[in-house]
Nucleic acid binder design. Structure first.
Lengths: 208, 208, 208, 208
DNA sequence: GATGAATGAGGGTTCATTCAT
DNA sequence: TATGAATGAACCCTCATTCAT
């Protein structure tokens, strides 16, 4: 038992050191600058060893994706819990997403990069795995809106789902635009736009 | 004169045949499956010849990007011109974007792929070139909204720009979600959501 | 006649503009960075045109070599003529060689580079051409020494030739060492060494 | 232990077989005729394997350079040790250098080729590595001359260094001239000139 | 469990030269 | 005379993966 435990722990550590190296390289050099050989050298282990912990290169990237999504979820969850007021909840969630895209830029870029790549490049299995984690995200919004309806703060509606999705679409769309300062934003500050959109959207929920 | 013309035309044709080959490969095999050698073989020309028409591999992709953006712009322009009613205009533009993402899926994926790639992967120059063309897109929305304000159909506002950007963000965000059927939409139809969002957004513009 | 003359002149000008471009590239980028294509682009002419004026790439380099050797010869000749005193003559010649290696560094490097390359790389014909011009160099020394002997300033000798060659060897060897500051000179100044060598050698000629 | 040792030995052997192939090609076809692919084919290994033993192409050439310099140093050392008489020492050293340039012509050419190449062609690092080994060469001369001074055979002098450098310059210069039979030597035998120069130089050291 | 040597196809790019116009 | 489009072998180097130890 103690032996098995130790083995398990060591295995975990090794795996993490591989991920550490891969993350470092991915963030520093991009995906095309991250090879198995370089990961091995960075992690100071043999190339072959990597294949003991990961089936192939892709699997490593899946794991890194999961990390990112996990971080995002934590931030959203914390935002959700930060207040009992459902309007504040929504604002906090929006801020959390913006914050994630800014403070965890590398993860954010990586997730977007992989998600937007044509399916050929990455096997469907990856996306399935990502999906499972991703589902939770929009759930917070649904609950926040429903909460508002239940409390009588928001107007009645058939289902909070479409509103939640629309809200998330605004967030996601806006945050994508940060890269397009010259194109779409054309000098406008993303924060200003976000605040405007938040007020507009929430105000609309509130009204009779 | 006739000679120069013919030269020019031949040059154009060659360039196009290279782009045809590149487009085919890019759409079939993704970016990592599209090499200069394969393009040359597909276009049935020598490798060196390609470098006579394009400085490097990236420039080919830029050109393909432009193609896609050009198509999108045409569709948006047509939508903008299709009606004199500003509410219809907005709906048509939204539909056009959705249509583009569906009917020109390959171009749509390609554009998203490049846009979402971290700067490390593709030189800023590419994005700059794309930017120039991209600016026009959001312009249609600004004009449509302003038109509605001028005509007294929409409520008064300081500037149509934030509304336009918010509108575009909804569209862009929603369309991105198509890939995430299992995650965010969770079975919901994107068209339904879009229509819901459209009515919500436009209704909000309309209201006093 | 007038026509032929003009043709001849134009031909000469074209040739020179090719050489100008080649020289520029050679000095800036080294031999491996100097291609026919680049020369053509720099000279703003077609690639094919170059082959009207030069059989092949090598011939261009031969011509550039000649230029360098011509410059060196001019400097040596001027040094030779600068004084009627034979000791001064020798010193001036030595200085001229040093000066050439310094002020015409690019030519100097080029000559040394080509001369020291194994015969396979450059056809014997090149070296023959270079040889013809090179012969004149050592001639100045022979004449200067002989002059000193005739005037009774230098001791009698069977032939000035060996002394001249030895003198030239010292110069050539020393000047080569400039690149080896850390190896052979190990901090010593090449000028100091040259002056020392000059005095030693000439003093030896002088002595009874 | 036994395993590691064998590994080490095999590694050494592989490395040598690569160097053998590279040396062969370099001597037969010159530097521009020596490509990584050819080396791999000659050594009957995969291209990639080479990069397991050498960082890049340049490093192979550095190693070959070292070989040559090592041989030269051995010959010089042997010459230095061959006699206790300092005059004989000097003559033997001179002969050794001449002998090296003749019997190890390929190495000699290679060294000269690299040393005379403008800095653009080969990175400074190569020269640094070569430098380290090269330093030893001139050291023998300094010691030989100093020895003569100490024994009273040579005249007193401030420092043997300038004389040593001058001596080495004569040798180096003369040996370079072998290629220029038609230019500088113009039929003179290099051995005759060398002997003349030796007597002249040593005679000068000797005199009061 | 862990290693690291080996692979060889493939990557993007350059090249001197030819030749129809 | 001058052009410039075309070639395709060759350049150096990287890669994910395998497997005997």
């Amino acid at each position: 038992m103690g032996l098995q435990e130790r083995r398990q722990r060591e295995r975990e550590q090794r795996k993490n050191s591989i991920l550490d190296a891969a993350r470092k390289l991915l963030f520093e050099n991009g995906i095309n600058g991250t090879s198995i050989n370089k990961i091995a050298k960075t992690a100071e282990i043999g190339v072959g060893t990597i294949y003991f912990y990961f089936e192939n290169k892709e699997e490593i990237f899946v794991e890194l994706q999961m990390e990112g999504i996990h971080i995002l979820n934590s931030m959203l969850e914390e935002a959700f819990d930060s207040s009992s007021d459902c309007e504040v909840k929504l604002k906090k969630i929006a801020e959390a997403y913006l914050q994630f895209s800014r403070e965890q830029k590398d993860y954010f870029d990586m997730i977007n990069y992989f998600l937007s790549s044509p399916e050929i490049v990455f096997a469907p299995s990856l996306k399935d795995q990502v999906d499972k984690y991703g589902k939770q995200g929009v759930g917070y919004l649904v609950r926040a809106i429903q909460d508002g309806v239940d409390k009588g703060q928001f107007k009645k509606m058939d289902s909070p789902k479409p509103h939640a999705i629309m809200f998330w679409a605004i967030l996601h769309g806006l945050v994508q635009f940060r890269k397009l300062k010259n194109t779409i934003l054309e000098g406008e500050e993303i924060d200003t736009i976000l605040e405007f959109a938040l007020n507009d959207f929430i105000g609309n929920l509130r009204k009779v």
